[in-house]
Amino acid sequence: MRLSADLKAFQTRIGHEFARTELLVRAVTHSSIASTTRPDNQRLEFLGDRVLGLVMAEALFSADKAATEGQLAPRLNALVRKETCAEVARDIGLGEVLRLGRSEMLSGGRRKEALIGDAIEAVIAAVYLDAGFETARALVLRLWGKRISAVEPDARDAKSALQEWAQARGMAPPKYTETGRDGPDHQPQFTVEVTLGNGAHESARAGSKRLAEQQAAAALLKRLEAGHE
């Protein structure tokens, strides 16, 4: 299968030239434009998620031989979570080469965190199927780069950490409420407020509800841990 100019350029950006070019085409094909003759990337996403997890687990395991499972797990979560995957996808311009249906394109699909985060996992799987695990491993380590060594030793998902904080004090889980949405349809901004049972609350605004929730949780947790409540 011949590749379009944008996909040829994308190959250069990720540092892998596909022998089976149909794998790359499938990796960038969203379900909104899929058909019986044009399969989407969901199965590849499933496989790529596992390849990514194994590569990251191996890298963390080798980097800190004294770390316990309880210390390694949150670091792994920080590196494979959707927000991080989306950051990597943006770095390589993955959104620019996605094959999307018209409605998804008009709603800003090329910038949606979940969509491009899923797509980078599909690309990883495509490389794995095209050239094997070692090539896929090298790709992941190259694309994630300094994120691996820079991950915080006590990295925690902010929402999980806030929930643990509340539970340790006998409170109900934090409540997240979408309090606003503005901006154009193709690039919306969400405002989310997180509230605890003791009345403590914080808000955050971001390009996805998921990210806004994380940022609100992180802001509230920082304030709580500083003893401002």
Rank of each mutant, 00 (worst) to 15 (best):
T36A: 08
T37S: 14
T37Q: 12
R38W: 09
R38V: 11
D40V: 14
N41P: 00
N41K: 01
N41L: 07
Q42G: 02
R43M: 08
F46N: 10
F46C: 04
F46Y: 13
L47K: 05
D49Y: 07
R50C: 00
V51P: 10
V51F: 12
V51D: 06
L52Y: 05
L52G: 04
G53R: 13
L54Q: 15
V55M: 09
M56E: 02
A57C: 07
A59N: 03
A59Q: 00
A59I: 00
A59M: 03
L60C: 09
S62I: 06
S62W: 02
A63H: 08
A63L: 10
K65G: 12
A66H: 12
A66S: 12
A67H: 05
T68I: 06
T68N: 07
E69T: 05
E69D: 09
G70N: 14
L72K: 15
L72R: 15
L72A: 14
P74C: 08
R75G: 00
L76N: 01
N77W: 08
N77M: 13
A78H: 12
L79H: 00
V80R: 14
R81T: 09
K82G: 00
K82V: 09
K82I: 08
K82C: 02
E83C: 02
E83L: 11
C85D: 06
R90C: 00
R90F: 02
D91M: 01
D91S: 11
D91V: 04
I92M: 06
E96R: 15
E96G: 01
L98V: 12
L98G: 01
L100T: 06
L100G: 08
G101N: 14
S103M: 09
E104L: 07
M105N: 12
S107G: 09
G109C: 05
G109M: 10
R110C: 05
R110H: 03
K112V: 01
E113D: 02
